[in-house]
Amino acid sequence: MNAGTKGGGKVFTTIAISVILILWLIPTIGLLVTSFRPVSLINTTGWWTVFYVNNGPEINKSEGTYLQQLGNRLTIDNYIDALTGYRGTTTYRKDCNDGSKPLGYKCDISDLLNPRGMGRAFLNSVVVTIPATILPILFAAFAAYAFAWFDFRGRYVLFAILVGLQVVPLQMTLVPVLRMYSALGLNGTFLAVWLFHTGFGLPYAIYLLRNFMGGLPRELFESAYLDGATHWTTFTKLVLPLTMPAVASLGIFQFLWVWNDLLVSLVFLGGTKPVMTYQISNMVTSMGAGWHLLTAAAFLSMIVPMIVFFSLQKYFVRGMMAGAVKG
């Protein structure tokens, strides 16, 4: 429909955005609410029933304002158990309060660093993810620049192969690469994971960056050339800053893929240097018991990607390009 007037457009925008946002939020809210519910209720009642404070099991009935009552129906045990990596049959807090210290726990702050918990895994995840995000983007920026602004033999063929390489399934490459790593003694090192993610991140990174760089106006390069700039200075001083929005979005996604990857770190790094996804998947027993911890753990592992997303937002600013072209 044609939103003729500004006012009508605004209302339409607000309504449309609100509808989409609500639809998108519902599942996530469900996960969030579930992560604060006691395990016995998760399986037997819908997560939304938590808001009907006057219904539900007697044990959760209480006095006070709506919020107080709501608060009484929720628990942070799932988060505590996920953070400490508690695997017993009750909860970490209950065991500690009873005085029956769970095996391997001291019931003080140091339990946050328990090897089964998320703390150490968090550190490993960070160590894996940051180089595995930066390296492919770095190499890709160079290659993308060449594909966009150099003329060399075979670049069409190479670019075609590049697009095709994106679809190669990761599972197919594990065996040959692992064989190579073990011959080189790289098995179980962080370097092994960084390189693998770099290899798999490159085709898409080059593809995306080339398209952005290829879209830069030709005048930009001509004026730089007239000023006596070399390719190197053009690339570093002009092209890279201008490609920042693309680099930022690429950075977000490469970060996410590596952060949420389980298989690659499991195959090359193994359980000896567990990353967060490893700990998350191991909270549930092979028969599916304990998966309430998953909801809490899934939220914990979301925190960092969301921070990355927010902090890279500043690169999505209108007019960066326009200003640059003029200047």
């Binding site: 073990s182 080189l184 003694g185 098995n187 179980g188």
Partner: peptide, 14 residues
């Protein structure tokens, strides 16, 4: 270092 054939290098036992 680990000899190539021995699987993951061991840092701390879990």
């Amino acid at each position: 270092t680990a000899t190539p054939t021995v699987a993951p290098t061991v840092s701390e036992p879990e």
